[in-house]
Every structure is written in structure tokens, then in C-alpha cells.
């Protein structure tokens, strides 16, 4: 097939997935949070309200796009794209199954993290350009959070890379195949050594996602809608589409790095292979459900507490973790050669 066509089809597949994911996740969020609050969530459009988000998208498309007076026009129009494009590009390296991934980049993990860390630039841009004090505060908070927690996020994934010896996300999943002692799946989460790394990853990624309990950048009870206050219609829609898409990407990273990607433990690969992408998606959505659960459970923390936690606890802890992992892996290698 024509290579240009292949490239185009793959990118369009990612776009379709991103849009579908946004629609599904908004519905899921409203339903999950609703039931956690002992409410029903959307019920009226379609059975159990399943068409609600589709209608919401149509509504956003036909709503008047208001550009407030006094905004920094150039940045105001670029910001939704600056939020959307990196979040869209992050789909490029996610491995949905052994053969299904849009690209098999050898630097996949680094690329995905780089794409995610570009998103707050768009948020800062939106906050600044809106000429609104709430937006400005929201954007600034997002920047402060981002720089405090990007380092623990990057460092918390190093033990996995040290063990797997590759940055290719597909190869990281392949490094988790098989059983340990004949019954423990070789998923990284099954090794106690990786538990602190996983905990750091969960905390740091919730902060990077601006998810409750770390949603200070769009805290609706303090800052109206934070950096998105002055955005309406489809620009607002695109910003929120990227937020939901980032949740998907982070959950997919967690599944890939710690939970064996598309594999099912104790079931041979040849049996799983036909349904591998389904298994992967189920795992990813389970991860997102846990994020929503956290959102429905914990109150918001204060920004000074957040900064203290990041700089004084998580960064030293993640550095110590790398050194400990290094020593443990080398000792294990010297004694029995379990690492590969």
C-alpha cells in the first residue's frame, strides 16, 4: 500500500479513538460520579442517558463562540491547539497489542512523556491569554504543579526501564510475559520492588493530569473554571477532549509499564492474541475508573501542601528508589541472573 496512505490511515485511527474515548469517558465520569454521590447521572437522552454526550458534542458545535474583549487574541486562538496537539500525538506509541500500535518507536516511553509534559504549556497559554484573573491563577497553578511533579513522574518510571532495558513500549510489555516461580505473572506490579515506583507514578500522574485531589488549576469552587473560564463552544470542547484523552494516555502507560499491557496471566499468548486489544482497553478503563473513584472520594489538597509534598518528599524518595533498585538489580544479576 502507498506509504502516505498508511500514515494517514493510522493517524485517522488515532483521531477516531481519541474522539470516541472522549465521548465515552465524559458519559462514564458523569455516571460513575453520579452513582458515587447516590444520584443517577444522565438518564433522559437514550436508554440510561447513553446518548447524552453525543448531544453535548452537537450542542458545543452549534453554540456561539464568544471571544471576550481584551484577550490576547493570538495566544487565545493558539492555546486550544497547543493543548490538543500534544495530547493527540501521545497516541502514537501506545501498544494496543503485540501487532497493533500506531508506531513502534524505540523511544516510545520518552516520546509519550514528552508529549504529556507539553500540555501544561497550552494551559498556561490559555490562562494568560484569557485576560481573566481566575484563568491567570489557574494557569499559574498548573505551571507550578507541573514543574514540581514532572521530575517524580519521570524518575518513578526509571526502575521499569532499568529492568526492561528498553524504551520501546511494546518491548516493555513483552518483557513482562511468562511466569515467575511457575505461578506469579512477571508483571512488574507483581514485584514488591516496583510497588513504591507505582505509588509515586500514581501520585505524580494525578497531579500532572490536574485530577482531583490535585485539581487546583481548575478548582471550580475557587477559580470558576480556572484556565478555561473564558473559553466557549468548540474551543472549550477541544480543551476538555484533551483532558480526557490525557487520562486515557496515563492509564495506558500504567497498564503498559506495570500491568502487563495486553496480556492475561496464566493464559497462553496464542489464546489471548485475537482479543488482545480488548484486554488492553479493559485494563485501561479499569485504571480510569480508579481515577474517577479517587475523584469521588478525596477532598482537594492545598497548593502549598502539594508543593511541599513534591519537592521535600517525592523527589528525594524517587532518587533513593532508583539507587535502591540499581543495587538490588545488580545483586540479583550477580547471584542468579534473573534480569534480562
Amino acid at each position: 500500500m502507498n506509504p502516505v496512505l498508511v500514515v494517514l490511515l493510522r493517524i485517522l485511527a488515532a483521531l477516531g479513538l481519541m474522539l470516541a474515548n472522549g465521548v465515552v469517558l465524559i458519559y462514564m465520569l458523569r455516571k460513575v460520579l453520579g452513582h458515587m454521590h447516590l444520584r443517577l447521572g444522565p438518564m433522559h437522552v437514550g436508554p440510561h442517558g447513553i446518548l447524552q454526550t453525543t448531544m453535548d458534542v452537537l450542542k458545543l458545535l452549534t453554540k456561539e463562540d464568544i471571544t471576550p474583549r481584551g484577550v490576547d487574541r493570538a495566544l487565545y486562538f493558539i492555546a486550544p491547539a497547543a493543548v490538543f496537539v500534544p495530547s493527540f500525538a501521545a497516541y502514537a506509541a501506545i501498544p494496543f497489542s503485540d501487532s497493533w500500535s500506531i508506531t513502534s518507536l524505540d523511544t516510545g516511553l520518552l516520546f509519550t512523556l514528552a508529549a504529556l509534559s507539553l500540555v501544561p504549556i497550552g494551559i498556561l497559554m490559555a490562562g494568560w491569554a484569557s485576560a481573566n484573573k481566575w484563568s491567570l491563577l489557574g494557569g499559574m497553578r498548573a505551571a507550578a504543579q507541573q514543574i514540581a511533579y514532572e521530575v517524580p513522574l519521570l524518575l518513578s518510571l526509571l526502575p521499569v526501564v532499568m529492568f526492561a532495558g528498553t524504551l520501546n513500549l511494546g518491548d516493555i510489555v513483552r518483557a513482562q510475559s511468562g511466569l515467575w516461580f511457575g505461578f506469579v505473572p512477571r508483571w512488574f506490579i507483581a514485584f514488591p520492588l516496583f510497588w513504591p515506583a507505582f505509588l509515586l507514578f500514581v501520585i505524580a500522574s494525578l497531579v500532572e493530569l490536574n485530577q482531583t485531589p490535585f485539581d487546583m488549576s481548575e478548582a471550580e469552587s475557587e477559580l470558576v473554571a480556572g484556565f478555561a473560564s473564558e473559553y466557549s463552544a468548540m474551543k472549550f470542547g477541544l480543551i476538555f477532549l484533551s483532558e480526557f484523552s490525557n487520562q486515557f494516555i496515563v492509564s495506558a502507560l500504567g497498564v503498559t509499564l506495570f500491568f502487563g499491557g495486553w496480556m492475561i496471566p496464566w493464559v497462553p499468548e496464542s489464546v489471548v492474541a485475537p482479543i488482545a486489544p480488548v484486554v488492553f482497553m479493559l485494563k485501561v478503563y479499569t485504571g480510569i475508573f480508579v481515577m474517577m473513584w479517587i475523584r469521588g472520594t478525596f477532598p482537594r489538597v492545598r497548593i502549598d501542601q502539594l508543593m511541599q509534598l513534591g519537592w521535600k518528599w517525592l523527589i528525594p524518595a524517587s532518587l533513593a528508589l532508583i539507587l535502591v533498585t540499581g543495587v538490588v538489580l545488580k545483586v540479583a544479576q550477580a547471584t542468579q541472573g534473573v534480569t534480562g
Binding site: P3, V6, V7, I11, L12, V85, A89, A92, T103, L105
Partner: peptide, 14 residues
Amino acid sequence: LDYAILAGFVVLGA
């Protein structure tokens, strides 16, 4: 081709 796809992501996203 992989890197061409990445460039395509940026262009088509915008």
C-alpha cells in the same frame, strides 16, 4: 515511517 507518522500527528492535529 514512524517519524513521518509523528510529523503527521502534529500537522493533522492542528
